[in-house]
Structures are given as structure tokens and as C-alpha cells.
């Protein structure tokens, strides 16, 4: 069941899992999905705009706990999260579409693709989480202060101001609660070690995959691009973005959008 709005904008499904589901739709053209990372997507996120300007209809749902999508105590395990993501992909009309996914969103996309290989026609993954090497551990993003956490995500911490500082005109209490809920959702996905057995399933991912990594990623070191590359049989290319941190699509939105377009054209 596709439930995206008819034109650009956002919509909220009020009856999704006894709560609400927020989906943004920006631009016109062939549809592409975007699963955000540790910071929830907004309709005016620069990367979404850049992607839409490449002639795409970007459909970007907020994952549970992020933005206008309800949090849920029922999401206790990775299985719960993947089931919810699968449902969101269907509701958003993204089944079989190409998908750009970042950080924790990329982890969920890989988990879903490993048990539902037909879910995506192409995956463009930005700094995915989900593998673990003892000799090169993924950084714990929550063993630091709030400003420290912010500094881990992007090279320019000012880029995430709307999330961390609140948008102009926004109720500060509502913004604080939304920020806390989103950070809690991230914690539930990465705590204490973001390895839920993906390495045992990732070989099932059969769609083409493009990997993008911020060269300055301080959460998932860029060497993880090699670890993922080893496991993905349909890997098309790996792109290291100089000057970008973990959320490379925030630090370099235009460049990442170009890579996405190029990857899909070749695919």
C-alpha cells in the first residue's frame, strides 16, 4: 500500500502502529528512498534538496522515534526494528525502489535487504553501521557530552543546528523531547555494540550496492568500507568523501547527491 502524498510535502499517518509515521516527499522524477542516520530527516535538509534537484522524487520516512514518527517501546530487538522498517518501506511506496541510507538507517536497510533481497533495486549506503572488528571498534557515540556527540556526527557541527539547537519558532520543550526521543532511538540501535549478527546475513544482499564514506568519519572508521566491501557480492563502487564526517550527506550534500545519481545511472 503506497501512502505517500500526491505532491511534494510531508504527510503523517496517524494510525501507524497506534502512533504516527511521518514521510517527506520532495521533487519530481523517478522515485528514490532516503533513510536518515542519527539525525532525523526534514523536508529542507540540504541533501534531500540536492537529490531532488538531480531530477528525483525523494521519499524520506522518519524512522520510529525520529521527527514526527512515534517512538515505540515495542522495538526491543533488531528483529523488531527490521519488521518496522519493512512495514515503513511498503507504506512509503518504496518497495523495489533505489534507496540511499545513512548510518543507522543504512544498518536497517542492510538488515532488511538480507532477509528481503527484493526490497531495494539499488542501495547507496553512507557510513553504514552493523559490522564490528575488535581491532578497530566503532566509536560509542554516547560516551561523551551532548556537544561531543554532535561533534562526532559532522565535520561542521553547525550543520545539525536545527536538531541540536531547535529550529526558529519551534517550541523549545517540544524540541527538547523530540531530540531526546530521537537520540534514544539511536541508542536503542547501537547500544552497547552495534553488531546484531549482520555479518551472518549480509551475503544475502543481492541488489547493487554503492558505498560512500566520510574520510573524517569519527564513528565508523573509513577502514570499515573495506570490511563491508568484502561481504557485498554486488558492490559497485566505494567513494571516500574528503572533508566529510560520519553523516557525509550533511557535510557534502551536493557531492553525495552526485554520486548517488551517477551510481544509479550506471546501475
Amino acid at each position: 500500500m503506497a501512502a505517500t502524498p500526491d505532491g511534494p510535502g510531508s504527510m503523517t499517518l496517524d494510525s501507524w502502529r497506534a502512533g504516527s509515521l511521518e514521510i517527506f516527499r520532495v521533487g519530481r522524477g523517478p522515485r528514490i528512498g532516503y533513510l536518515h542516520g542519527m539525525v532525523p530527516v526534514t523536508s529542507d535538509e540540504a541533501f534531500v534538496t540536492c537529490l531532488a534537484e538531480q531530477g528525483r522524487e525523494v521519499v524520506a520516512p522518519c524512522l520510529p522515534g525520529y521527527g514526527g514518527t512515534s517512538t515505540s517501546r515495542d522495538l526491543r530487538t533488531m528483529h523488531d526494528w527490521v519488521a518496522a522498517t519493512s512495514e515503513i518501506i511498503d507504506v512509503a511506496g518504496l518497495n523495489g525502489a533505489p534507496m540511499v541510507a545513512s548510518s543507522v538507517g543504512a544498518m536497517l536497510a542492510l538488515e532488511l535487504a538480507s532477509i528481503r533481497p527484493e526490497a531495494f533495486s539499488h542501495l547507496v549506503l553512507i557510513g553504514p553501521i552493523g559490522l564490528w572488528r575488535d581491532d578497530c571498534p566503532v566509536t560509542d557515540p554516547f560516551s561523551t557530552t551532548l556537544s561531543g556527540q554532535r561533534n562526532l556526527l559532522t565535520n561542521d557541527p553547525g550543520l545539525t543546528a536545527s536538531f541540536y539547537d531547535g529550529a526558529a519558532g519551534e517550541d523549545p520543550v517540544v524540541a527538547t523531547i523530540q531530540r531526546y526521543t530521537a537520540r534514544t532511538a539511536t541508542a536503542s540501535l547501537v547500544w552497547p555494540i552495534p553488531d546484531f549478527g549482520l555479518s551472518q546475513r549480509i551475503h544475502r544482499v543481492s541488489c547493487p550496492v554503492t558505498l560512500i564514506w566520510g574520510a573524517d568519519d569519527r564513528i565508523v572508521p573509513p577502514v570499515y568500507a573495506d570490511f563491508f566491501a568484502e561481504s557485498l557480492s554486488e558492490l559497485r563502487s566505494v567513494h571516500l568523501i574528503e572533508g566529510a564526517g560520519h553523516l557525509a550527506e550533511w557535510d557534502a550534500p551536493a557531492r553525495v547527491a552526485e554520486i548517488v545519481t551517477e551510481a544509479l545511472r550506471e546501475s
Binding site: S143, T176, R183
Partner: peptide, 17 residues
Amino acid sequence: YPGFADPPGYKTLQTVR
């Protein structure tokens, strides 16, 4: 270390509010 003091999810939403 202050970075250990306030992980998200530990407080209830009522406390955060």
C-alpha cells in the same frame, strides 16, 4: 567523566519534559 552521566533513554520523557 560527565560523558557518562546522561545517556539518552535513561530518563523518562516526563523527567525530560
